[in-house]
């Protein structure tokens, strides 16, 4: 079975993606590993894909998205990094792979994902919910159960499909929706690519909801998952092998949530300490902090979220300024400075 695994990220997440791809390569040396990047290398950083732990890079600009610059401008970094997952998985269905697996760049494998391939014998679409056990504690209900009602039942840091049948039909549908509606707009009922997938069990057949606690362990489900490391060297979650961890929010905020729900389950801190060491070792100082090539106008002025929202809401602006990143007279930036006020 030919498997393609991909992750979508920008250069500021290259360090995390390296850790993910190294773990994928360690456990699945025969899988094709693809980096889907919506960015351009920062000046002074010599990006050599051949020396990276993935097989190839696909640039978002090469996905054939119509009016790419205009489309891109409508999204902030999170929105666009999740939106491009749709076109890629749709196109990959015609690329020769039998199975396509998406993993967020801040996930890491700790054991092989072979059971996924077994499940894909009977199913075409695999999803991991944020929660597989309900919380009873008030704080945990607020932080986890209610939060996922807003952002989506399934965590789209992972999805796996067969490239035929319902898997292909899902990929086409997701592609279509994400090209037009992949925004962080919770009041409207949208949360990037993720909230859409609440529909999946209703819209598609052959969907498997993975209820194995070893998959997609993260701060949002630690309240109901206990980690252990055995004398045989195996790491388990509620007794099941730990497959992959989702290291969401590397930093103080993530630390607070992890501590709140891991308590004295110390192997959780061992895993995090290990991950922080790996990310630090994979960090290239030539990549500026928070770098994103599409975060600024051509003259270097930062693009504000409100400017992106205005542009995506106004068809007339999109028509008048097909390259909204441009600077100088007669550009969208110029319009913003003189007309928008």
């Amino acid at each position: 079975m030919k498997v393609l695994a991909y992750s979508s990220f920008t250069f500021s997440y290259l360090n995390r993606a390296r850790v993910l791809f190294e773990s994928l390569r360690r456990h699945h040396p025969d899988w094709e590993l693809v980096a889907l990047m919506t960015d351009e290398p920062p000046p002074g950083f010599d990006f050599d894909p051949a020396s990276e732990p993935f097989d190839r890079v696909v640039w978002a600009s090469d996905l054939g998205i119509p009016n790419f610059k205009s489309w891109l401008f409508k999204h902030d970094i999170i929105e666009v990094s999740t939106a491009v997952k749709g076109p890629f998985i749709h196109q990959a269905c015609a690329g020769g792979a039998d199975v396509v697996i998406y993993l967020d760049p801040d996930t890491t494998l700790f054991a092989p994902l072979d059971p996924l391939l077994d499940w894909l014998g009977d199913h075409d679409i695999l999803l991991t919910p944020h929660l597989i056990d309900p919380n009873d504690d008030h704080m945990a209900i607020l932080d986890n159960d209610i939060s996922t009602l807003r952002t989506g039942i399934y965590n789209l840091g992972f999805v796996a499909i067969r490239t035929t049948g319902e898997g292909a039909r899902f990929a086409k549908w997701w592609n279509d929706r994400l090209l037009s509606y992949c925004y962080d707009d919770i009041p409207t009922g949208l949360f990037v690519d993720q909230r859409w997938c609440d529909h999946v069990p209703a819209l598609f057949d052959k969907v498997k909801v993975i209820r194995d606690p070893g998959y997609n362990v993260a701060s949002w489900n630690l309240s109901r998952r206990t980690l252990a490391v055995g004398k045989d060297g195996a790491i388990t979650v509620n007794g099941y092998p730990l497959r992959f961890w989702h290291f969401t929010k590397l930093g103080p905020l993530g630390d607070v949530m992890t501590k709140r729900y891991a308590g004295d389950n110390f192997p959780v801190y061992e895993i995090w300490a290990w991950y922080k060491r790996q990310v630090a070792a994979a960090t290239d100082p030539a990549i500026p902090d928070r770098w994103w090539a599409y975060g600024r106008f051509a003259d270097g002025e930062p693009i504000e979220k409100a400017q992106r929202v205005l542009y995506r809401q106004r068809g007339d602006l999109q028509a008048a300024y097909p390259d909204p990143f441009a600077s100088g007279r007669g550009t969208f930036q110029d319009w913003l400075a003189h007309e928008a006020a």
Binding site: F110, A111, V229, G230, K231, D232, G233, A234, I235, L242, E270, I271, A273, W274, R277
Partner: peptide, 13 residues
Amino acid sequence: APPPGSAACGICS
């Protein structure tokens, strides 16, 4: 001292 290639050794400093 589990097998050197174990997951436990993988996360150990």
